[in-house]
Simulated scan of single mutants.
Amino acid sequence: MKEPKRCNWTKIQGELIHLVKKYKVYEMQDEKVTMVAWNKISDDLKMSVDKCRRLWDSLSMVYKRLKLMIIEGKLSESEARKNYWVAKYVDGSLAFLEPFVLKAPPDEIEKIKNHANTKRILSHLLRYDIDKSSSVPSSSRVRKRRFDLSNFTVKHCWNTKQKYPLETYMDDLARAICTSLQPADRRMFIKEIDTIVSDLLQK
């Protein structure tokens, strides 16, 4: 059976997950030791420690919340795997975090469930309010979220040395998709759009 299409991890997300697992940051208790590990990750990714940690917090919290929904029967793993936006969270990449969900004390469970940004992201990805456990459109709280895209810039897939305003880049992508004769090129451009959307959701 053909595997459903899904939004895959971006290069940075994939590398971050690999490095967190490699250095076992998620197991560390000592803050000094933890900072040493994060500095190594920062050097490897050529990205600030703060940005690395914020991205990891976002990815790991979404995984934990999604896992809780599956455990509580609010969402089946099969449904998650078929969902274009959340399938990557159940592809096994973050399975090393599962014990921390299964063995989490009640106060930690509540912290995961009540994490506002995680609820917003997951509600947006699933297209319904996860607190209501219904496949109806997201609540006004989610829909009212507005991104300030005026200063958001991206790198062209064919020119990675320079960043462009989002509006300019999206216009270029739209023209490229419409004028490209090769299906492979069109898929590449569409994947670029998926990557941008994924990046925006992690903001």
Rank of each mutant, 00 (worst) to 15 (best):
N39A: 07
I109Q: 02
A174Y: 14
F96V: 00
N151P: 00
Y63G: 02
K155C: 15
K64T: 02
P106H: 02
P4L: 03
V20D: 01
P137K: 07
V136I: 06
K67Q: 12
Q162P: 01
S198T: 09
P165H: 07
F152W: 13
N114M: 07
S60P: 03
Q162N: 12
A95W: 00
D44F: 04
E167H: 11
G92F: 01
K2W: 09
W56M: 01
Q162K: 15
Y26N: 07
P165Q: 08
K46Q: 14
V49H: 06
L94Y: 01
Q182F: 12
V86G: 01
D194E: 15
F189G: 00
I112L: 03
I112N: 02
M28K: 13
K111I: 00
F189R: 10
D172A: 15
L16C: 02
W38K: 04
V90M: 09
R127N: 08
E27L: 12
S134T: 09
E31D: 11
E110A: 08
L16M: 04
S42M: 07
N117A: 06
N159P: 04
S150D: 14
E77W: 00
S60A: 15
R187K: 15
K203A: 05
A95R: 05
K24Y: 01
V62D: 10
N8I: 10
E98S: 05
T160D: 14
